[in-house]
Design a protein around this nucleic acid. Structure first.
Length: 828
RNA sequence: GCACGAGUGGCGGAAUCGGUAUACGCAGCGGACUUAAAAUCCGCGGCCUCGCAAGAGGCGUCCGGGUUCAAGUCCCGGCUCGUGCACCA
């Protein structure tokens, strides 16, 4: 056996052997229980970065661990290959996105393989493959039938960088989540998924996701934004129109002194009186020009205009003026609010600015009444005052009764409002799934869209003259491709035009986890029998940045799949692991801009894949960010060298056996090995890979301490220890351990070997350390035989000089004895 | 503002159920090997005070309280950092 550890000469060899033997294919143990381990599929940019490496490692260790524990493991990989970067690159250099994507996948695969991940490559999928995206179109048609897809003409988020509409979830602080360009409001038709039909279900489902990080479930809860309240109608004076308002504080309605509409509310034009028209018009135009972000930013001054109209409070019958104001949003609730300046801070500020009246109707319970005049709104709950028949009731009770009253009078009702909006998924780009719709002027003059029949799927992306079509300007690229656009109407057979928009690529990632189960199945997106076998995903690993995008969308989709008989479960993933970021050595995000990028290939080239793996996993717990450290990489490499040298040094013990008994040094070696098995198994189980590796390091250190082996028992113990070391290190550093095992005469691949079990008798010590405390302070340490009784330990402890000194001239009040841990004398 | 997460040596981190705080690694220091260096191996290692030393005592997990024989861990209040949502009625 070579004295030196040379990863280069061994790693590719074992990668090839694993692949040839097909050891990572699923369905190899159909009788065994299953584990489905998945990492978020990557967008195939040309180069892999450390974030990818870490992401896939977190899943890989688990997959390998379960594989060795005898589970039937599914661990697939594929490509989220539609999307803007390839299209933008094409606009720049004229290379067709399909060509670019194929190149990128090829180089990404090479890198991914060099790290020795345990993927079942027979299930590889690519979302830009027509065999994949035809099922996006199939889902579209099924969802259209169910009313889950619809076409709407509305205000959309237009990203000025991506030149396309994007979803609410993709807008962050008024800019595009992907390219950070400004996002503008634009009125245009679009296709949308009625995800809001599932808002309640998605919210309730969060309670069942006990193995998801709180951070993610809480973000989703926030995003869905369920809010219980009531709607109430204010009749417009001198008109049969009504203003419907939404409020969570109907108990304050007797304090309503005016009503406010969003500047773009439909009623504004109709109700504004002629004398107010010019001002209201100017205000609305100015607000429309400002853009949503500036107009609604907190801290923006509240401003508005009086419409000249008056509305009637359904409870008091009083007239109140109707205003428009910047802080009311057209697309939340009903786009109209009742203003209660005494009990809402925004209304308070607005009323002060425009000298509108205040009317306090809630008094704090059991405290002094509110001061007159108010200096700020009193927004807490309390007891109703000056509220007709409801006076004297508490807020919560009043809300119930007032909502019931509204319903009885036909003037409103209790309702629930969600912050979440439907998911607009039309994109004005080329490199995505074509929407399977045609427009026929004869059959469909309203341009509602006629679905392409299922048997005509897929609607393929056409071949194009890349430079002529992908210009990054104007209308959707597909509109320029006459051979694509011009088609026949599926209803009348006459001339028709195809929809030229494509689907958001988040559609692709909504159900890919199901496609892996039967990637070639052609009757449906997934073979229901396979879905039953493999779903849900047991462990899903990815970045937390998808909390309210992908991770919300695919939960929605899974519910739809269940209704379509394709999924046995409501929730796609049992356990979610969100990995932290790998920053550069300077603590900043790795970026070309800072010149702090560490390329995975350079680490694999210098130290080997096993070092890269051990370093990344040892650097910290999975969820936490860490800064890259070259010194720590060398530490990881040093550890593997020590493993290698130990194995090489003791090569002659290979195959050594001993019938027993084991004692002295031989027994110590065996105990260290079995304790390591216990510790590492438990650590991997709870995903604490860094402490698992620490456990292996300690075990290795103890084997170094054993030095020269003299007896047959010692040699046999070392042979066992080195085999155990190889097995428990395999999920982390699979190449070096295969090489060591083969040098030691192992016939099978370790990748298929059984995970070791420990002998319970070997993990207990005969001597136990005890802490001796006096009043909770450590005064002495004892090593006592494990079988010692409390009385024996107490006697030993009391005999200790330091303990005696600490207890001198004090009264013993109590003795606390914790088996295997400590004895505490309480004195006073 | 609301929600969630985090704060432990010089650094990354460990402490699984309230039971000896700082495992393991990095950097550092000392020793062995070497003509020398690197590499490797062995050892030391929170802070303060006293002591030549062995050792002894005190303090110590962001801060302030509390519960407990015992708190990094539980409770209350606060600070700082990070993330998400945000004039959401």
């Amino acid at each position: 056996m070579n004295e030196r550890y040379e990863p280069k000469s061994i790693e590719t060899k074992w990668q090839d052997r694993w692949e040839q033997a097909g050891v990572y294919r699923a369905n190899r143990r159909p009788q065994a229980p299953k584990k489905y381990i998945l990492e978020m599929l990557p967008y195939p940019s040309g180069k892999m970065h450390m974030g990818h490496v870490r992401n896939y490692l977190l899943g890989d260790v688990y997959a390998r661990f379960f594989q060795m524990q005898g589970f039937d493991v599914l661990h697939p990989m594929g490509w989220d290959s539609f999307g803007l970067p390839a299209e933008n690159a094409a606009i720049k250099d004229g290379v067709h996105p399909a060509v670019r994507t194929a190149e990128n996948i090829a180089s990404f695969v090479k890198e991914i393989r060099s790290l020795g991940y345990s993927y079942d490559w027979t299930r590889e999928i690519s979302t830009s493959d027509p065999r994949y995206y035809r099922w996006n179109q199939w889902f579209f048609l099924k969802m259209l039938e169910r009313g889950l897809v619809y076409r709407r003409f509305s205000k959309v988020n237009w990203c000025t960088g991506c030149m396309t509409v994007i979803a609410n979830e993709q807008v962050k602080d008024g800019v595009c989540e992907r390219c950070e360009s400004q996002v503008l409001d634009k009125e245009m038709p679009e296709w949308a998924f009625r995800i809001t039909r599932y808002s309640d279900a998605l919210l309730e489902g969060l309670d069942t996701l006990t193995q998801w990080p709180d951070r993610i479930t809480s973000m989703q809860r926030n995003w869905i934004g369920r809010s219980e309240g009531a709607e109430a109608e204010f009749a417009l004076k001198g008109s049969d129109q009504k203003i419907r308002i939404f409020t969570t504080r109907i108990d304050t309605i007797f304090g309503c002194t005016y009503v406010v509409l969003a500047p773009d509310h439909k009623l504004v034009q109709r109700i504004t009186t002629p004398d107010r028209r010019a001002e209201v018009q100017a205000f609305a135009t100015r607000m429309a020009a400002m853009g949503k972000e500036d107009r609604t930013a907190e801290g923006a001054t509240k401003e508005g205009a009086f419409t000249g109209a008056y509305a009637v409070n359904p409870f008091t019958g009083q007239d109140v003026p109707v205003w428009v104001a910047n802080f009311v949003l057209a697309d939340y609730g009903t786009g109209a609010v009742m203003s209660v300046p005494a009990h809402d801070q925004r209304d308070f500020e607005f009323a002060r600015k425009y000298s509108l009246p205040l009317r306090p109707v809630i008094q704090p319970e059991g405290k002094d009444p509110l001061p007159q005049p108010l200096e700020a709104a009193f927004t807490e709950e309390g007891v109703l005052a000056d509220s007709g028949a409801f006076s004297g009731k508490r807020s919560a009770e009043a809300r119930r009764e007032m909502a019931a009253w509204l319903e009885k009078e036909g003037k409103g009702k209790a309702t629930i409002t969600f912050r979440q909006r439907d998911w607009g998924f039309s994109r004005q780009r080329y490199w995505g799934t074509p929407i399977p719709i045609v427009y026929c002027e004869k059959c469909d003059p309203q341009r509602q869209g006629i679905p392409v029949p299922e048997d005509q799927l897929p609607v393929r992306l056409p071949e194009i003259d890349t430079q002529a079509v992908l210009t990054g300007k104007g209308e959707p690229p597909l509109a320029k491709v006459a051979s694509f656009v011009n088609t026949t109407c599926p209803r009348c057979g006459g001339p028709a035009r195809r929809e030229t928009e494509t689907m958001d690529t988040f559609v692709d990632s909504c159900w890919y986890f199901a496609r892996y189960l039967s990637p070639d199945y052609d009757q449906a997106p997934v073979d229901p029998a396979q879905a039953k076998r493999w779903l849900p995903v047991d462990v899903y690993v990815g970045g937390p940045e998808h909390a309210v995008m992908h991770l919300l969308y695919f939960r929605f989709w899974t519910r739809v799949m269940k209704e379509l008989g394709l999924s046995p479960v409501d929730e796609p993933v049992t356990r979610l692991v969100t990995q932290g970021i790998v920053n550069g050595p300077d603590g900043r995000k790795m970026s070309k801009r800072w010149g702090n990028v560490v390329a995975p290939a350079s680490i694999v080239g210098r130290f080997g894949a096993d070092t890269a793996r051990v370093y990344v996993l040892f650097a910290g717990p999975p969820e936490r960010d860490f800064d890259w450290s070259d010194e720590q990489v060398e530490g990881a490499h040093r550890f593997l060298k020590r493993v290698w040298v130990l194995a090489a040094t003791h090569r002659e013990v290979a195959g050594a056996t001993h019938a027993g008994p084991y004692e002295g040094k031989a027994l110590e070696i065996r105990k260290a090995a079995h304790k390591a098995v216990k510790r590492v198994t438990e650590a991997i189980d709870r995903l604490s890979y860094n402490t698992a590796i620490a456990g292996i390091m300690e075990f290795l250190n103890s084997l170094y301490a054993a030095e020269k082996l003299e007896t047959p028992a010692e040699r046999a113990a070392m042979a066992e220890a080195i085999r155990i070391l190889s097995l428990i290190l395999t999920p982390f550093a699979p190449h070096i351990t295969e090489e060591i095992a083969s040098e030691y005469g192992e016939q099978k691949l370790l990748a298929e070997a059984e995970w070791p079990t420990f002998d319970p008798a070997l993990v207990v010590d005969d001597m136990l350390p005890y802490a001796v405390q006096v009043n909770g302070k450590l005064r002495a340490e004892l090593k006592v035989p494990a079988a010692s009784t409390e009385a024996e330990i107490r006697a030993l402890a009391e005999a200790d000089e330091r303990v005696k000194a600490a207890m001198a001239d004090k009264q013993l009040r109590k003795v606390v004895f914790v088996p295997k841990r400590l004895i505490n004398f309480v004195v006073g």
